[in-house]
Amino acid sequence: MSESSSGVNISSESFSKSYSSGHSDLSNTDTHIPFLDPRHKGIQQEGSDSGISSPLPCDTFRHITWQKLKDHDVQGTQLRCPRVREGPSEEELLLRGEERTFQRKNKLTEKEIWQQRLQENWENCVNLNLSFQDLGDPYQQRNFCRILRRLIRVERLWLVDNSLTDLSAIRLPRCRELNVSKNHFTSFNQLPKMPQIQHLSLAENNIETLSGISALRNTGLESLILKTNPCEFQEDYRLQVFSILPNLKMLDGIPKLPEDWSPARNSFFTNMCIIL
């Protein structure tokens, strides 16, 4: 466990000033998870100077999420960027030839199961960074969505570079700031339900058209980032976005300009039948 993965998750900075950077500025307070010293044999690392193999303790825990480590009571809301990606099953590790990394699981008691659920206190989370989780397998995606469904109070959420394709079944009732940059969304219809959204980053996805963007019209959306999506290269791209979202104040980091909202040109769009 490194210190960088276990910082307290509290921030007073405005997401709208930094949410397009792809890096979190959540908190500078650190909580230390007790480090376990596994005497795990069979995992070796070649020494840089002597060439002699030496144990690599952290390799033992590379498929374990934080709440499964013993002797600590750190909760999800205390972590800056918690690892929630579930590791493979024992059978899959055997097929991969990685059985040495498997931690034998004793059957958990009801008390232990309850303690783990208390540590995953996602319902109380307000600011959360779940970026770079490497969700390459379906079972990892399912577990990730299970957590997202529990974020009933989250207001600021980062989901950068998670290979996400469709979160339309997810509802984030209090989310005001969402960063889903560097994912695989192809349509606005694949976004979660966010009635309170104010700042949204969709940079570096694969959204080809503005179809479905009108679903954001009845929200309080003020800033939107669509950089490096194919839809950015449509003719009159900015004019179309501001026509559909008249309350939008900033697009791709640039404030609304007079040419983005011309009354004469806007009347042309209002008289058109636009199907989105």
Rank of each mutant, 00 (worst) to 15 (best):
M1S: 12
S6A: 07
G7M: 08
E13R: 11
S16M: 04
K17A: 12
K17G: 01
K17V: 12
S18R: 08
G22K: 08
H23I: 13
S24V: 04
L26D: 04
L26P: 00
S27P: 01
I33G: 01
I33Y: 00
F35A: 12
L36Y: 02
L36P: 01
L36I: 14
R39V: 13
K41D: 13
E46N: 06
D49M: 09
T60H: 06
F61D: 08
R62E: 12
I64W: 01
T65N: 14
W66D: 09
D71Y: 13
H72G: 07
Q75H: 11
G76W: 05
L79C: 11
R80W: 03
C81T: 13
P82F: 08
G87Y: 08
P88A: 13
E92V: 12
R96M: 15
Q103S: 04
K107T: 15
E112Q: 15
I113M: 10
W114E: 14
Q115V: 11
R117E: 15
R117I: 10
L118S: 03
W122F: 15
N124A: 11
V126K: 12
V126P: 00
V126T: 13
N127E: 09
N127D: 13
S131D: 06
S131G: 10
S131L: 06
P138M: 03
Y139E: 11
Q140I: 10
Q141E: 12
N143Q: 11
F144R: 05
I147D: 00
L148M: 10
R149D: 10
R153P: 00
V154N: 04
W158F: 13
L159Y: 06
L164N: 06
T165F: 03
A169H: 10
R176L: 06
R176P: 00
L178F: 01
N179D: 15
N179K: 02
V180Q: 03
K182V: 07
K182Q: 12
N183P: 05
N183M: 09
H184W: 04
H184Q: 15
F188G: 07
F188I: 07
N189H: 14
L191H: 04
L191P: 02
P192A: 05
M194I: 02
P195V: 05
H199W: 05
N205C: 04
N206W: 02
E208Q: 14
T209W: 05
L210Q: 04
S211V: 13
S211W: 02
I213W: 02
T219L: 01
L221Y: 01
L224V: 04
I225P: 00
N229K: 06
C231Y: 05
E232Y: 02
V241S: 00
I244S: 02
I244N: 01
N247L: 07
K249V: 03
L251A: 05
D252S: 04
G253W: 05
I254M: 07
P255A: 10
E259L: 08
D260A: 03
D260S: 04
S262K: 12
S262P: 00
S262F: 01
A264P: 00
F268G: 02
F269Q: 02
T270A: 06
C273T: 15
I275N: 04
